[in-house]
Amino acid sequence: MSETRSSVYAEAVLAIARAEDALGAVPDELFRFAGALEGHDELREKLGDPHIPAALRQQIVQDLMGDRATKASVAVITMLVGAGRVGDIAKIAHEVAAAAASSRGEQIAEVRSAVALTDDQQARLAAALTARTQRPVTVRNIVDPAVLGGVVTTIGDAVLDGSVRTRLTQLRDAF
């Protein structure tokens, strides 16, 4: 998907969220769905399989999300799956979250960790990042087993890498 097309989809999602008065929930739920999708290859393949009827794939989304998300978020994700944009959901979610945060004067920090951060840890990390960047930061935690341990934070163009994976890679490169 091109940059322009993902931006158009992100604007569409934001428009739906505004129309449904769910601008606070949709970006967060879409981001969490994207993170979950990234950690489940089989689910990603099923939802992106063009040989499976779109209605069936959308039904899978509705069954999975059920009451765990707002109707607006389910509608948005169902629309993206039906449009065959499963592979671009992460990018769209990131743009939506960034746009929503920007509209609130905040910035998004994508935090990848091998295990989920607790709410307290996310709050403390957000505070630390806010102090560091001098701008309010909203933390979006993605569970990524490839990190092995530690945390990798991407905020804007900056990457704060404290992952075990990177330490091992540095160790290998040192040979």
Partner: peptide, 20 residues
């Protein structure tokens, strides 16, 4: 890397970001 180790790594990371 059990859960305690993971939590320790995360806490260490948060501390480092805050200390910076």
């Amino acid at each position: 890397l059990d859960d305690a180790s993971q939590q320790a790594l995360i806490e260490q990371y948060i501390s480092q970001v805050g200390a910076a």
